[in-house]
């Protein structure tokens, strides 16, 4: 499983291409292309610039949150509170913006808050060794309940001019998409080549071996959660600055969507494998599926059923690939 990561990068270009095509990232990319071609053939408007922008812009924050989530899962943990966290941070961002503070604070303070909140979870998980599912299930309740009792669901209106970061379009591409691409690339590079990045895989893959290699498990997990909070903070800012009002509630099922993107992207829930490129591609695929169902006139009743089937099919394709490789070895 870890082979994709560990293989030396010395192979020839041809075999490297083949290996990519049969990796989870390759399968996702093929699935995305097939989907775009098939639905585009059915209804050309699916491929219009506007629709592509809708698919990417409206879901970039999920891909960004999935980067941090992937790291958490690679380290052998999970965070089911990420949806509530994003809801809280988006509300913080909006509240700062309307209270007349400088806009850059509205964009950066939520990120710091995200790192701080996530650091609390990370501390409980890493140093006090409470299982991550317990901590984050608890956090889910605490953040959600806290948010509702503070805001009572009042929307944040009248956001100041210039606050809407996600709507900016440098070089014609929405800012949210820039964030998604740049952050994915940086995180992927960092996880693969930096010492710390590799230690995340080590901690998640084989904690004992990691210990022997002199890696501080607790410190690694703690830092992973702080980084996860950083990405959740950025995702929240993108989420908050996308529309003219902020709902100040917890977006329904957001944690499931983010976790789905990570696991469909090939991050093994058992820890130790997976890349953030995969999770970003998966986030795109899931978003594209949602959009395409409207385009091919699937009765909306069946939408969730089709989504579930597609998750299953992606995973099955991945398993088939792994089996094949295992046989050939």
């Amino acid at each position: 499983m870890a082979a994709t990561m560990a293989l030396p990068a010395r192979a020839s270009a041809g075999s490297r291409l083949r290996r990519f095509l049969f990796s989870q990232e390759g399968i996702l990319l093929i699935a995305i292309i097939v989907l775009f071609v098939a639905v585009g053939a059915y209804n050309q408007r699916f491929l219009s610039a506007n629709n592509l922008s809708t698919i990417f812009l409206g879901n970039a924050y999920i891909a960004v949150a999935a980067i941090g989530m992937s790291m958490v899962i690679v380290s052998g943990n999970i965070d089911v509170s990420v949806g509530s966290l994003i809801g809280v941070l988006a509300t913080i961002s909006g509240t700062i913006a309307v209270s007349g503070w400088p806009l850059w604070l509205a964009w950066t303070l939520p990120i710091l808050a995200g790192m701080a909140i996530s650091a609390v979870s990370g501390w409980l998980i890493a140093y006090l060794r409470v299982p991550s599912i317990v901590v984050t299930l608890g956090m889910l309740s605490i953040l959600k309940g806290g948010l509702i009792s503070v805001t009572a669901g009042a929307w944040i209106n009248n956001l100041p001019q210039g606050y809407h970061l996600a709507q900016l379009r440098p070089l014609g591409v929405p800012m949210a998409v820039w964030f998604m691409i740049v952050l994915t690339a940086l995180a992927a590079f960092w996880m693969r080549y930096s010492g710390f990045g590799r230690s995340i895989y080590a901690v998640g893959g084989n904690a004992e071996a990691a210990r022997l290699a002199g890696i501080d498990r607790a410190r690694t997990v703690f830092i992973v959660f702080v980084i996860h909070g950083f990405f959740a903070g950025i995702a929240a800012v993108l989420f908050a600055t996308q529309l003219s009002v902020i709902q100040s509630t917890v977006p329904p099922n957001l944690e499931l969507t983010v976790i789905t993107a990570s696991v469909v992207g090939g991050v093994s829930i058992l820890g130790g494998t997976g890349t953030v490129i995969g999770s970003t591609l998966a986030a795109i695929l899931i978003a594209a599926i949602g959009s395409s169902l409207v385009f091919i006139n699937v009765s909306p009743y069946w939408l969730r059923a089709v989504q579930g089937l597609l998750i299953l099919l992606t995973v099955l394709a991945d398993l088939a690939r792994r089996r094949k490789r295992a046989r050939h070895r």
């Binding site: 789905t260 009765s299 939408l303 059923a305 998750i311 299953l312």
Partner: peptide, 13 residues
């Protein structure tokens, strides 16, 4: 996770 979506979808469908 997949059947969470799938079974709910079947119920709706």
């Amino acid at each position: 996770l997949a059947t969470l979506a799938l079974y709910r979808g079947l119920a709706e469908g």
